[in-house]
Write a protein that binds this DNA or RNA. Structure first.
Lengths: 146, 146
DNA sequence: GGTGATACCGAATAATTTCTCGGTACCTGA
DNA sequence: TCAGGTACCGAGAAATTATTCGGTATCACC
């Protein structure tokens, strides 16, 4: 594991928030689990825009931070299930609001981006999130995420 | 300016959100301006945990993305003022909720961190946010940010 | 003319995150 | 025994973000 060189400020609420689910794939993973993907292999199948290894790593962090937990029957057909802890569930409304905001403003943002990039160009490599067609039902209803 | 190698998915609401204010100092800057710091030099004085250069760069991005705007009198005593656009103001409630969540859960997070790090150690360099004692008044009231 | 304040920016480097490639281990069914 | 599925992990490369150091330019004041 990477050893940080700079101290983090865990007294800043915002910093804490970013720390826990501000990474590239964590929101997707949380969402996938919230929607019913329990087994690692299921999550891999849901999120195809990055490699299983990456998902494993981020899932591990979510586990370490207590966002998710898993059933630990080290038994025969090797069957593991992850689920959100109460702590993990408390993230959902926040995630939903963030997704909602982005959803609302994405066209404006695209416009701005285009305006800024009117000097730069090139066609970067493709990479995009997708958990297929996704919706959330929590307090803010019908928020697509990823 | 850095030219991205990988394409971004601006159709993912969450990605958009992170893109606009998911950087290390952007929330602090937005907050500082929302609270009344108008001039770059004022912002520098408010946020002392990073260098003016860093703040300038992020401020520039916020400007490019239309989160803030500025008065452009290229005149005598060189006086520039930044302010939040309506787009920028729409961020405040989201930021507040994020800060609130982090505030609520930071002790739990610290605990988890300690648990995970019980093998690693060392004492990293100090760096911490601070905009002095800070509060927000928007819809979720009294959220300290940074 | 020199100093200080103001607002910026370029470029190199450090720090951190993400990704790729490959490997371990266990069990099952052919 | 061999291929296939499942759950993981190590280590280095690549991408991206944050930071530092120094520089430009304008004006005011002494």
């Amino acid at each position: 594991m990477y050893k940080r060189k700079k101290k983090e400020d865990l007294d800043c609420g915002l910093y804490v928030t970013m720390k826990i689910f501000g990474a590239k794939w964590k929101p997707c993973i949380i969402d996938a689990i919230a929607r019913g993907a329990k087994r690692p292999s299921e999550i891999h199948k849901q999120i195809t825009s990055t490699s299983p290894r990456v998902l494993d790593m981020q899932l591990k962090e979510l586990l370490d931070f207590g966002v998710v937990a898993r059933t630990n029957q080290s038994g025969y057909p090797l069957y593991v299930e992850y689920y959100l802890t109460p702590f993990g569930e408390s993230i959902l409304p926040v995630l939903a609001q963030m997704a909602q905001w982005g959803e609302t403003h994405k066209e404006f943002v695209k416009q701005q981006m285009a305006m800024v990039l009117e000097g730069s160009d090139e066609n970067p490599v493709t990479t995009s999130h997708d958990t297929k067609g996704n919706f959330r039902r929590n307090d803010v209803e019908m928020i697509s995420i990823c």
